[in-house]
Design a protein around this nucleic acid. Structure first.
Lengths: 131, 131
DNA sequence: CCGTATCCTGGGGGATACTG
DNA sequence: CAGTATCCCCCAGGATACGG
């Protein structure tokens, strides 16, 4: 891009300049990027989970990041938050339809990750010399 | 984790402590995490691409990050680097088998990203109130 | 039990310039 | 054309503590 050369007439496509053609991969990255979004989503795949349960299951995440990520994911329409208030406060998070549509991608990623773990742990195939 | 309490006998599982049970999703994130790995991989899906071609196609990536990411991906066995040296230097990068196995996941992500773009751009369905 | 405010640090990633 | 070295900034994410 940069400045288009001046050729005497307009060579730009106005619409394309304003609403730039966006890469879906980049878009996905905006929503699920970062250190915890994917692990979080993954742990919600099987159904609604409570805040503290997530805190325990998603090893290493801090209270704060959990709260922040859940909020963002909710804002992006991937999660739904629901209170089941009794005496003590209970909050559950569950995937929305939009969130569930991400699961196929997560499953593929999971499978791939498994492969890597087993290969790097067992015998490295190396992949060197294959087409 | 942390220090296990001393209960007089060994309550730890040695093997589990050394080769901790690792989450495949986390493993995948180590390899393809960051701002540019996924876009890069995506642009290599169709075949070998030259350094400068990638520099142009992956909008916004800097010369340096491109070099760094390619190196890391090569180190992780996802890419293969090959020189086609003539007068001027030419270097091509292509997915290895390991790299190609990631494509199904990328395609799913791409499809999902497309959905989001069209929904957020056109009429937001919102997803609020659906089961 | 759940959420947020504040503070602080590390390293991811950009700019620039140099080499082969 | 391809790759590296250096410097530097910024903010994602951790620690801690308070509030409903």
């Amino acid at each position: 891009m940069g400045e288009p050369e001046n050729v005497g007439y307009d060579i730009t496509l106005p619409a394309a300049n304003i609403y730039e053609v966006r890469c879906p991969i980049l878009r996905a990255l905006e929503v699920i990027g970062g250190k915890w979004k994917l692990p979080l989503l993954w742990h919600l795949a099987d159904g609604a989970v409570r805040f503290n349960a997530l805190h325990r299951e998603v090893r290493g995440i801090t209270h704060m990041m959990l709260s922040k990520c859940l909020k963002e994911l909710e804002g992006d329409g991937l999660l739904r938050r629901s209170e089941c208030g009794g005496k003590v406060r209970h909050v559950e998070y569950a995937l929305t339809e939009r969130g569930r549509r991400l699961l196929p991608a997560l499953r593929e990623l999971y499978r791939w990750g498994e492969e890597q773990l087993s290969q790097d742990g067992g015998g490295r195939t190396g992949d060197a010399g294959q087409s």
